[in-house]
Amino acid sequence: IMNCCEQCGEYLPSKGAGNNVLVIDGQQKRFCCQSCVSEYKQVG
């Protein structure tokens, strides 16, 4: 599985992206930055 930001689609290095993760309905959603997390929450 490719690690990509759920919001902008930016490729995420394998281990460096652990900071910005949401778990929604048991699914891990990865993000490249906190602003993408916030945007995803607003839209979702």
Rank of each mutant, 00 (worst) to 15 (best):
D25E: 09
Q27R: 06
C33R: 08
V37Y: 12
G44S: 05
V23M: 15
D25L: 02
I24E: 13
Q27M: 09
L22C: 05
C8G: 03
K41R: 13
N20P: 13
K15W: 08
G9I: 02
I1M: 14
N20V: 12
N19E: 15
I1L: 05
Y40N: 04
Y40S: 14
Q34G: 12
Y11M: 09
M2C: 04
R30T: 14
K41I: 01
S14C: 10
M2W: 01
V37G: 06
V37I: 00
R30S: 14
Q7C: 11
E6S: 07
C32Y: 01
G16E: 14
C33L: 03
E6W: 03
V43M: 06
E39T: 14
N19K: 04
N3T: 05
R30K: 15
N20G: 08
Q7A: 09
N3E: 11
Y11G: 15
L12C: 03
C5K: 03
V43G: 13
S38T: 09
G9S: 02
I24V: 10
E10M: 01
K29S: 04
F31T: 05
K41C: 05
P13K: 01
E6F: 06
E10H: 06
K29W: 02
L22K: 10
M2H: 05
Q42P: 07
C36H: 03
I1V: 12
A17K: 01
Y40T: 14
N3I: 05
V37F: 05
C5A: 01
C8S: 03
G16T: 15
L12D: 07
Q28W: 02
Q34H: 12
A17M: 08
V37H: 00
Q27L: 11
R30Y: 03
I1E: 12
E6M: 13
K29P: 01
Q34V: 13
G16K: 00
C32M: 01
V23S: 13
G16P: 07
N19W: 06
C33S: 13
K41E: 05
S35A: 10
A17Q: 10
V43P: 14
Q27K: 00
L12G: 03
P13V: 01
C32K: 02
S35P: 10
C32S: 03
E6D: 13
N3Q: 05
L22V: 12
N19T: 09
K15R: 03
K41Q: 12
E10T: 00
N3C: 06
R30N: 14
C36K: 08
G26F: 08
S14V: 11
Y11S: 15
K29C: 00
N19V: 08
G26Y: 15
N3G: 08
E10S: 03
G18F: 00
L12A: 05
C5H: 01
C33G: 11
Q7W: 06
Y11D: 15
L12F: 03
V23I: 13
E10N: 03
N3H: 07
Q42T: 12
E39V: 13
S38A: 13
Y40A: 13
G44E: 07
C36G: 04
N20E: 14
G9L: 04
G26S: 10
Q27C: 10
N19M: 10
K15E: 15
V23D: 12
M2P: 03
K15F: 06
L22A: 10
C33A: 12
Q28K: 04
V23W: 10
Q28V: 07
Q7S: 11
G16W: 04
N19S: 12
C5I: 00
C4Q: 14
K41P: 12
K41V: 06
E39P: 04
N19Q: 09
V23E: 15
V43F: 03
G26C: 10
K29R: 10
E10K: 10
L22E: 12
G16M: 12
N19G: 12
D25S: 04
N19L: 11
S38W: 06
Q34Y: 01
A17W: 02
C4T: 12
G16V: 04
L22N: 07
N19P: 03
V23L: 05
Q34T: 11
V21A: 10
S35G: 13
E10A: 02
S35K: 14
E39Y: 13
S38N: 04
R30D: 14
Q34C: 09
D25G: 10
V21N: 03
C4F: 02
S14W: 02
G18E: 15
V37E: 14
S14T: 09
K29T: 04
S14E: 14
G26I: 04
F31H: 04
K29F: 07
Y11C: 13
F31S: 05
C36V: 02
Y40E: 13
N20M: 11
P13C: 14
C33Y: 03
C33T: 11
F31A: 07
Y40D: 11
C5R: 01
C8Y: 04
G9D: 01
N3W: 02
K15H: 14
C32I: 00
C4L: 09
S38L: 11
Q27E: 09
N3L: 05
I1A: 11
K41D: 15
G18Q: 00
C33Q: 10
C36N: 04
G9T: 12
E10V: 00
Q42K: 11
Q28N: 04
S35C: 09
C36A: 06
L12N: 02
V23C: 07
S38I: 09
S38C: 09
C4H: 13
I1N: 14
N20K: 06
S38Q: 12
C33H: 09
E10W: 02
S35D: 15
N20R: 04
E10Q: 02
G44D: 04
Q28G: 05
Q42A: 14
M2K: 14
Y40C: 15
C36S: 02
N3S: 08
Q34M: 13
Y40K: 11
Q7D: 02
G26N: 14
Q7T: 08
Q7V: 04
D25H: 14
